[in-house]
Nucleic acid binder design. Structure first.
Lengths: 211, 211
DNA sequence: AGCGATAATCTATCACTGATAACTTATCGC
DNA sequence: GCGATAAGTTATCAGTGATAGATTATCGCT
């Protein structure tokens, strides 16, 4: 049985950007069911209500489309982290909250997180080269907020590691490991999730901070 | 310029398994240059010196071929971890060594690690369903050794977490986060690798063990 | 040595993929 | 109405994973 082939009406002259948004939304929605390689440009186009070649008026390649989602995911993460920083003070309690913010983001928007952090890129950043390094740049921006927080804790004399940048990378890796496995290997026999997350954060805090 | 189309001689009657090995070797070699989706069955076949459809005499699908590599990667990891356990005693020093064994494996065989832990599987373990759950089972076996070690440390009263299984999962996540990012995002401006790894292990130890 | 059986492999082909070329049509300012 | 052009189309390409069916080399057996 053929699909109903429902086409979205043609956009007025200046509204190409709007269609672009619709395409990105449709794509991200499809990426939750199958992985990035499993979703075809034809499926994306149909979900957006246009023909498949019409995609290429908005994105040069499928990678560019994915890169755009990647950038937006990083921006969302940065927004959440920055939001938390309004009440920020360098204390162990706020450290826990910051870790929780990252984990919450990843688990509440797993599709965005997958696209941003877990899409296999080609060798030595070929994906980033093809996409002009924009995802990488957006990722770095999100990372900077993280760096600043740990630097605060370091300045307050609360950290055990003498190199705050190294500590930041270590903590980020610790967080990423947990959420990426929870997202990608949900069928693994994990212990109860709340307790796992709480235990993980506690371990990171004890490993990173004094006391 | 066409490739030289060099074909491996036909195998004698009972030696199909040998060809199977050659295919797997060729595939893993190709997977280091491009990611799993970037390597085609035709490329694998040519590298193995046979025609593309001939692959399907040895593997029902491309996923099955990947799953076999996955199983072997887990087996390699298990072998390394088991090997380290011959000199095992529940001490902080041996804890560090065990962590290092895992990281060493991942970084010395990044292709195997990628195939085993970082290949995006479909939704809710569709990959594992399609491949009869064999990779998952192999992974669990490798994980058991890890569980046993942490249980030893727990029995010796060295751990801070009261649930050794939860702690094991937390530590595994911590290790996986670091190595998966180092492998997949090698272009990220990491601090010096040796120091990063040492710092990471130190953080995990302080977070997991008493003292 | 020659025969049947069959393992090992081939060529040809399918539906589908990302991408491009060339064409059409709706909307705009004048 | 008019030309200009943004927005979209259909038709097509080379490359993908996979299948069907024919072919060839190797084996055990007489």
């Amino acid at each position: 049985m053929k699909s109903p082939q429902v086409r979205s009406p043609r956009k007025p002259k200046g509204q190409g950007a709007e269609r672009r948004e619709e395409i990105l939304d449709a794509a991200l929605r499809l990426f939750s069911a199958k992985d990035v390689h499993g979703v075809s440009t034809r499926q994306i186009a149909e979900a957006a209500g246009i023909s498949q070649p019409a995609l290429y008026a908005y994105f040069a390649t499928k990678d560019d489309l994915i890169a755009e989602l990647c950038v937006r995911a990083f921006a969302k993460l940065k927004a959440r982290m920055d939001d938390g920083r309004s009440r920020w003070t360098p204390t162990p309690e706020m450290f826990d909250r910051a870790m929780m913010t990252y984990i919450d983001f990843a688990l509440s928007e797993p599709d965005a997180y997958r696209v941003a952090f877990m899409v296999e890129k080609g060798p030595e950043g070929a994906f980033h080269a093809r996409t002009g390094g924009r995802p990488m740049a957006a990722g770095m921006e999100a990372f900077q907020g993280f760096v600043a927080m740990i630097a605060d804790l370091h300045a307050a004399g609360l950290t055990r590691d003498d190199d705050p940048l190294r500590l930041t990378q270590t903590l980020w890796a610790g967080l990423h490991g947990l959420v990426s496995l929870l997202i990608a290997r949900s069928e693994f026999p994990w212990v109860e999730r709340e307790a796992l997350i709480a235990g993980h954060i506690a371990m990171l805090r004890r490993g990173a901070l004094k006391g």
